[in-house]
């Protein structure tokens, strides 16, 4: 009884976090804010749903596998979003106009569009000054 209650609570909260992730993907104004929503909130949602599955099965083998998936998500979600964000910044994806801090731009990092002389694209917004 109490076990089912915990399972339902974990499943519901995981689904709510997944809903927040998907809504953030759709509604956020910028690539970087969208990535923020997808990586962090999605990871928390998967972890909660996996906790619900562990409580539901109550077997050691499945619990081990689910803990492996949790560990894997905790390791790979930051790495993946960091790589995507870095590639997006290097290819010159614009920041949101309300962005306050752009440390990489202030440091004078050359994006690929600045390096190539043929493209007349302006560099990304340097709103931090």
């Amino acid at each position: 009884m109490i076990n089912e209650l915990f399972t339902i609570v974990l499943l519901l909260s995981g689904s709510i976090f997944m809903l927040l992730a998907a809504v953030g993907i759709c509604r956020m104004p910028d690539l970087y804010t969208r990535m923020h929503a997808a990586a962090k909130v999605g990871t928390i949602g998967v972890i909660l749903i996996l906790g619900a599955v562990i409580l539901s099965f109550r077997e050691l083998a499945i619990a081990t596998q689910c803990l492996l998936i949790i560990l894997f998500f905790l390791l790979t979600a930051p790495i993946g979003s960091h790589m995507i964000g870095r590639a997006a910044y290097l290819t010159g994806v614009k920041l949101w106009k309300g962005t306050r801090v752009d440390e990489w731009g202030a440091a004078g990092t050359d994006t690929l569009e600045k390096q190539s002389p043929s493209s007349a694209e302006p560099p990304p917004d340097e709103t931090a000054s």
Partner: peptide, 25 residues
């Protein structure tokens, strides 16, 4: 842009993993 689509694809992958585990239950 293309990185937007990649981020959305990553979110879809996360959702597919979660739904696959629920499907196991």
């Amino acid at each position: 842009s293309v990185p937007d689509r990649v981020v959305a694809l990553d979110a879809v992958n996360t959702l597919v993993v979660a739904s696959m585990i629920i499907l196991a239950v």
